[in-house]
Each structure stands twice: as structure tokens, then as C-alpha cells.
Simulated scan of single mutants.
Amino acid sequence: MPALLDLWKKMSAVPMGNKAFSLAFAQKAPYFATIRPTFRVIEPNHVELTFPKRRAVHNHIGTVHAIALCNGAEAAMGALAEVTIPKDKRWIPKGMDINYTAKADSDITIIAETDPEQWAGDDPDLHVRVRALTKSGVECFDGVIKLWVTPKPAKA
């Protein structure tokens, strides 16, 4: 949706604008606020956000909890879908296939990506690739979030 991309471009161009945008985005789906995401890149087919490793997102061994990683991935995917989807289509998540590949022992960067041609076809199944990196660049999480993309119904 161009409105979200336009808002991002305006807000991220000013000091602390990405923080303000991230706070507003997290209020749209309040569960996202639990990880305190900060969007770093929002463009069609590519979104990056970070969130801090802090006690509220720890698991029993003191690393970032798996569900906090999933929450970050879903936030990044949602922003990606909104700024990438063609105007005549709508989307809804329908599943997630995730692999935990290393301990998430630092602040986290989440990356969500698609290819432009994925949005052009008629196949309603669309997979958004997601991954999480630790501060030192170790990939601690990868997978796909499955979307169901369909034409918008005609307005009555």
C-alpha cells in the first residue's frame, strides 16, 4: 500500500522519524509492541527491522525467545506486504515454517524479502522469506511466512 511507504519515506527522513514510525506501526497491531521493533528499511520486496535483546523477550536460558523472533518476522512481513502488494489485491497470513538455527543471544535484525514476480501471478500462495541475524551476523532463524493473496472484491 503506497500510503504506508509514503509515510515511511516522510518519517524516516527526519531525526528519530524511524522510531516514531515504528511506534505507530506497532500500535496498529499492538502485539508487535512487545518486541519494541525499529524499522530500518522499508521498500517493496525488502524490509528490515531491529529489536533489542532485553529481559521481556528472554526465554528460560536468557536468549531471545522463539516467539519474539516470530513476532519480529511477522511485523517485517506485514510491512513488506503492505508496501509491495498490487492495489487490486489483498493478503492474509496463513502459516509459518520456521527453523531455529542458532542461539539468539543479542539484539536482533529481522529481514523479510520477496521477488517482484511473486506478486504478479495468479497463484494465491505467496511465500515471504524471513530470517533473523544476531548483532555479530549469525543467522539464528530462517523460514517462510505463507500468505494468501487474492483479488479485492468489487465494491458494491
Rank of each mutant, 00 (worst) to 15 (best):
E43K: 15
E43Y: 03
E43W: 03
P44E: 03
P44S: 08
P44H: 06
P44V: 08
P44T: 08
P44N: 02
P44F: 01
P44I: 04
P44R: 07
P44L: 01
N45A: 04
H46Q: 09
H46D: 05
H46A: 07
H46M: 06
V47C: 01
V47F: 00
V47R: 00
V47L: 00
E48Y: 05
L49V: 11
T50F: 04
T50P: 00
F51R: 05
F51T: 08
F51W: 04
P52V: 10
P52W: 06
K53N: 12
K53H: 14
R54E: 15
R54F: 04
R54I: 14
R54W: 06
R54T: 14
R54G: 04
R54P: 02
R55W: 11
R55K: 14
A56R: 12
A56G: 08
A56Y: 02
A56P: 01
V57F: 05
V57A: 07
H58D: 13
H58F: 15
N59C: 11
N59I: 13
N59Y: 11
N59M: 11
N59D: 15
N59L: 11
H60W: 09
H60C: 08
H60I: 13
H60R: 12
I61V: 15
I61W: 11
I61D: 08
I61C: 10
I61R: 12
I61L: 14
G62Q: 04
G62S: 07
T63W: 01
T63A: 02
T63H: 03
T63C: 05
T63V: 15
V64Y: 00
V64I: 08
V64M: 03
V64D: 01
V64R: 00
H65S: 10
A66C: 07
A66K: 04
A66Y: 00
I67G: 05
I67A: 13
I67M: 13
A68M: 09
A68V: 11
A68I: 09
A68C: 11
A68F: 03
A68P: 08
L69G: 01
L69C: 07
L69R: 02
C70V: 13
C70N: 10
C70F: 05
C70T: 14
C70E: 04
N71G: 08
N71Q: 13
N71F: 01
N71S: 13
G72C: 08
A73P: 03
A73C: 15
A73T: 09
E74P: 00
E74M: 10
E74K: 01
A75V: 13
